[in-house]
C-alpha cells in the first residue's frame, strides 16, 4: 500500500501547477503509471478522493494511463511485453529479460483546470 505516498507526492506536483497558473479549480489530472510500479487503480482513486477534499482538486477526475512493461530479450534481442502472471520469458525464443525498457515510469502527464 504505497498509493498514499504516491498521491501525497502527486498532490505536491499538482499544487506547484495550481500556484504557477493561478488555478481556482482542477477538473482532471492525468498520470502515467508503468505496469511495474505496483499501483492499484482502485486504491489510488480512494487515496486521491481523501487527499483532495477541501482543495482545488476536490471532485476532480484522476485518469490513470497504464504503460506496458516492455523488455529486451537476453537471447534474441527482440522487444517483448512481459506481465505478471506469466513466466516472463520471451514469447519468440524463451529467453529472459536483459533489460527493462518501460513499465517503471510514474509521472504527472497533464492537469486540466481554470
Amino acid at each position: 500500500m504505497h498509493e498514499m505516498a504516491i498521491v501525497d507526492n502527486l498532490m505536491g506536483a499538482v499544487r506547484e501547477q495550481i500556484e504557477l497558473h493561478n488555478l481556482k479549480r482542477v477538473h482532471r489530472v492525468r498520470i502515467i503509471a508503468g505496469e511495474l510500479t505496483g499501483v492499484v487503480p482502485e486504491v489510488l482513486e480512494f487515496c486521491w478522493q481523501i487527499c483532495t477534499e477541501n482543495t482545488p482538486c476536490q471532485e476532480s477526475e484522476l485518469i490513470l494511463i497504464s504503460q506496458p512493461a516492455l523488455a529486451l530479450c537476453s537471447q534474441c534481442g527482440k522487444e517483448y511485453h512481459f506481465k505478471q502472471g506469466f513466466d516472463y520469458s520471451c514469447p519468440l525464443c524463451g529467453g529472459g529479460i536483459k533489460e527493462v525498457l518501460s513499465g517503471k515510469e510514474l509521472y504527472l502527464d497533464f492537469i486540466d483546470g481554470e
Binding site: N9, A13, H21, L106, Y107, L108, D109, F110, D112, E114
Partner: peptide, 14 residues
C-alpha cells in the same frame, strides 16, 4: 485550460 506537465511524481525521492 489544459496544462501539459510531464513531471516525475517521485522525483524528490530519486
Amino acid at each position: 485550460m489544459e496544462i501539459k506537465v510531464i513531471k516525475n511524481i517521485m522525483q524528490k525521492y530519486q
